[in-house]
Simulated assay, not measured.
Amino acid sequence: MSIKSATPYFLLNGRTEQAIALYQRALGAKTESLQRFGDVDGSCPTAMRNRVMHAMLRVGNAVLMMSDGPEDVKLPEGGNVSVALDFETPAALRQSVEALAATGKVLERVFEAPWGALFGVVQDEFGIQWMVTSPLK
Score class of each variant (00 low, 15 high):
residue 52 V to G: 05
residue 52 V to K: 09
residue 53 M to G: 12
residue 53 M to A: 14
residue 53 M to N: 13
residue 53 M to T: 12
residue 54 H to W: 11
residue 54 H to R: 08
residue 54 H to C: 10
residue 55 A to D: 09
residue 55 A to W: 07
residue 56 M to G: 06
residue 56 M to L: 11
residue 56 M to V: 15
residue 57 L to H: 09
residue 57 L to M: 15
residue 57 L to G: 05
residue 57 L to Q: 11
residue 57 L to A: 07
residue 58 R to H: 06
residue 58 R to Y: 02
residue 58 R to S: 12
residue 59 V to C: 13
residue 60 G to T: 09
residue 60 G to F: 09
residue 61 N to K: 13
residue 62 A to N: 10
residue 63 V to I: 14
residue 64 L to C: 06
residue 64 L to A: 06
residue 65 M to C: 09
residue 65 M to K: 04
residue 66 M to A: 15
residue 66 M to S: 04
residue 66 M to D: 07
residue 67 S to L: 11
residue 67 S to Y: 02
residue 68 D to V: 08
residue 68 D to I: 06
residue 69 G to S: 10
residue 69 G to F: 11
residue 70 P to D: 15
residue 71 E to R: 06
residue 71 E to H: 10
residue 72 D to F: 08
residue 73 V to A: 11
residue 73 V to S: 08
residue 73 V to Q: 15
residue 74 K to T: 14
residue 74 K to F: 02
residue 74 K to D: 04
residue 74 K to G: 05
residue 75 L to M: 13
residue 75 L to G: 03
residue 76 P to I: 13
residue 76 P to D: 10
residue 76 P to W: 13
residue 77 E to G: 04
residue 78 G to W: 04
residue 78 G to V: 12
residue 79 G to D: 13
residue 81 V to D: 05
residue 81 V to E: 07
residue 81 V to L: 15
residue 83 V to H: 02
residue 83 V to K: 03
residue 83 V to T: 15
residue 84 A to R: 00
residue 84 A to D: 12
residue 84 A to P: 05
residue 84 A to G: 12
residue 85 L to P: 00
residue 85 L to R: 04
residue 86 D to F: 06
residue 86 D to N: 14
residue 88 E to C: 03
residue 88 E to K: 15
residue 88 E to N: 04
residue 89 T to D: 02
residue 90 P to G: 11
residue 91 A to Q: 15
residue 91 A to R: 12
residue 91 A to I: 04
residue 91 A to F: 03
residue 91 A to H: 10
residue 92 A to Q: 12
residue 92 A to K: 09
residue 92 A to G: 11
residue 93 L to K: 00
residue 94 R to V: 02
residue 95 Q to C: 04
residue 96 S to E: 03
residue 96 S to K: 03
residue 96 S to N: 06
residue 96 S to L: 01
residue 98 E to H: 11
residue 98 E to V: 06
residue 99 A to C: 08
residue 99 A to M: 02
residue 100 L to I: 11
residue 100 L to A: 01
residue 101 A to Y: 00
residue 101 A to Q: 01
residue 101 A to E: 03
residue 101 A to R: 02
residue 102 A to T: 07
residue 102 A to V: 03
residue 102 A to M: 00
residue 102 A to G: 04
residue 102 A to H: 08
residue 102 A to P: 03
residue 103 T to G: 12
residue 103 T to Y: 05
residue 103 T to M: 01
residue 103 T to A: 13
residue 103 T to H: 03
residue 104 G to W: 00
residue 104 G to V: 02
residue 104 G to E: 01
residue 104 G to I: 01
residue 104 G to S: 09
residue 105 K to D: 13
residue 105 K to L: 10
residue 105 K to C: 12
residue 105 K to W: 04
residue 106 V to G: 01
residue 106 V to P: 00
residue 106 V to N: 00
residue 106 V to D: 07
residue 106 V to K: 05
residue 107 L to G: 08
residue 107 L to Y: 04
residue 107 L to K: 14
residue 108 E to I: 08
residue 108 E to K: 10
residue 108 E to S: 09
residue 109 R to D: 15
residue 110 V to H: 09
residue 111 F to D: 00
residue 111 F to P: 00
residue 112 E to Y: 07
residue 112 E to W: 07
residue 113 A to I: 00
residue 114 P to I: 04
residue 115 W to Q: 10
residue 115 W to G: 09
residue 115 W to R: 11
residue 115 W to L: 06
residue 116 G to A: 07
